[in-house]
């Protein structure tokens, strides 16, 4: 996809912070941006096809739902890292998994229905991969922000 137009940027900014929660959300955004509802829907289709928008929906608070999340890390021999990552990926509670430039070279997030359940999964992963996995749960959250300001946004200043 070619670079984002100023309308795309305005739309993405709006959808990251102020998605209208009413019966006609696309119409509401179209009116604010001075374009048609069909135009908005077409742009969103394009942005999804291009992979810029992963999805539109709710982001739930794991803790409020009683779920337990933690960041895990492992030191994996380079020739085994793809295989180990694949075993880790097979768990639904693993949502992010990255190879990183550090002695701890594999980092993944794990969300489970409870702390005990996460411990069981981690022990199972240690057993299946033969690699030690450490858990680094958050003790305090200072920021969770996910909206990224798109530059050159003339529509929405």
């Amino acid at each position: 996809m070619a670079s984002l137009t100023s309308l795309d940027k305005a739309l993405l900014n709006m959808m990251q912070s102020n998605f209208p929660l009413n019966m006609y959300p696309y119409k509401t955004m179209a009116d604010k941006l001075g374009v048609t509802e069909e135009g908005i829907i077409a742009r969103l289709e394009a942005l999804k096809t291009a992979g810029i928008i992963r999805r539109v929906g709710a982001v739930l608070d794991a803790r409020r739902l009683g779920f337990y999340s933690t960041l895990c890390a492992a030191k994996v021999a380079v020739d085994r890292i793809d295989e180990v990552a694949e075993i880790i990926n097979s768990y639904d509670g693993v949502t992010h998994n990255y190879r990183r430039a550090h002695e701890y070279n594999l980092w993944f997030t794990l969300t489970a229905p409870s702390q005990g359940a996460s411990r069981i999964i981690i022990d199972e992963l240690i057993h299946k991969t033969g690699v030690n996995i450490v858990s680094m749960p958050a003790l305090k959250t200072y920021k969770i922000k996910v909206a990224l300001e798109m530059e050159g946004d003339d529509h929405n200043k």
């Binding site: 984002l4 959808m15 998605f19 928008i53 709710a58 982001v59 739930l60 409020r64 990224l148």
Partner: peptide
């Protein structure tokens, strides 16, 4: 449905309702 969505946002069960972007593709 709209009522429940708004209520669950107020309760903090839904942290936000939004477009989730792929950062790399969005220029970051």
């Amino acid at each position: 449905l709209m009522q429940r969505i708004n209520a669950m946002m107020d309760e903090g069960i839904i942290r936000r309702f939004a477009a989730i972007l792929r950062h790399q593709k969005a220029g970051y």
